[in-house]
């Protein structure tokens, strides 16, 4: 009996140690390899600006209730099935924002979802898509962020119930769902297609909203981009694959036009959470919007996931 108890205690201790080990941010790097953080000295600010709008950082990080989308004081509340997140201040403010960060810390945050002091970030920050971005693009983006105005003040803390309030557990989540793979171009496809895939799957993080999620919060891989319940719990995000229920009847020009003006081919204006996305994509050049459309037109058709049972409001 006593032996059994000892064995149990030892097992528990091993389990706890194993958990601690597996969830350590350094374990992630050990398993996936450390990201490349070497960068050319001077950032290309124009490219950084493009990636800022393609990445939609302002949708979450711009201070709510003001017109200037480049004042990134944070504070926006993001509802999710796990609780409420508040987007932090990422303006160059030295105390309240990321003014004190170096470029390597920024790259690790965007690609590994880990903070300069070694805490895991929640995937409400869509680094599962941003991990596709390369070091030099991220350095350009960081350079651009540094040119924006410093905004004082910190966002409120996240409001998360147990166990979601424990960041450490995210280490396991990342080992399972953050593959650490940077985008590789496909030489059998055109340069435009490759650019489009990069923008859609990387900075554009379109799949983060346009896909169903499993109970773990991870995107269901074979249903990617086929639509799903809105992550913020309001309504349903449409299918944007080449399925009949998706964008099959849309031309490439129709999609590019939507990303520029927000109008569908029927002159319905998209709303909901796509509104802020259009405010970002409207800032891109025609070539980048065309590339995204080119990639979307090449997607195989995927049927939309089943709709959730209707709830009475």
């Amino acid at each position: 009996m006593k032996k059994l108890l000892v064995a149990l205690v030892v097992l528990l201790a091993l389990g706890a140690a194993g958990f601690w080990l597996l969830t350590a941010p350094s374990t992630y790097e050990l398993v996936r390899g450390a990201p490349d953080v070497t960068v050319a000295s001077a950032p290309n600010l124009e490219n950084g600006r493009t990636l800022f709008w393609a990445g939609g950082c302002a949708s979450c990080h711009a201070t709510p209730g003001q017109d200037d989308r480049t004042r990134l004081g944070g504070g926006l509340a993001l509802e999710s099935p796990f609780g409420t997140f508040h987007a932090p201040n990422i303006s160059p403010h030295p105390r309240d924002g990321i003014g004190g960060w170096d470029v390597a810390s920024f790259i690790r945050a965007m690609r590994e979802g880990v903070s300069p002091d070694g805490r895991h970030y929640y995937p409400a920050f869509p680094y599962t898509s941003y991990q596709r971005m390369g070091a030099s693009d991220l350095a350009d983006l960081f350079g651009f962020l540094k040119t924006l105005s410093a905004v004082e003040g910190r966002a409120p803390d996240h409001v998360l119930p147990f166990p979601y309030n424990l960041r450490r557990g995210l280490g396991l989540w990342k080992l399972a769902f953050l593959d650490g793979k940077q985008a590789q171009s496909d030489p059998s496809k055109s340069a435009e297609w490759n650019r489009g895939r990069y923008l859609v799957e990387g900075p554009g993080h379109c799949a983060e909203c346009h896909s169903p999620r499993a109970f773990t919060g991870a995107i269901v891989a074979d249903k990617r981009l086929s639509g799903g319940p809105d992550p913020e719990g309001k309504g349903f995000v449409p299918n944007i694959t080449q399925h009949e229920a998706g964008l099959k009847s849309w031309s490439k020009a129709d999609i590019a036009e939507l990303l520029k003006t927000g109008f569908t081919p029927e002159y319905d204006a998209v709303g909901g959470s796509m509104g802020p996305v259009i405010r970002n994509t409207s800032q891109l050049g025609d070539a980048d919007r065309g590339a995204m459309a080119e990639y979307l037109k090449s997607l195989p058709p995927v049927a939309s996931p089943p709709r959730p049972a209707k709830k009475a409001d």
Binding site: D230, G235, F236, T261, G262, F263, A269, G271, G272, G275
Partner: peptide
Amino acid sequence: VLKNCGGCHETYRVKKS
């Protein structure tokens, strides 16, 4: 004038299906 369309839909409209 067209700015009004998306501006209103963003807040007061949600596709439910």
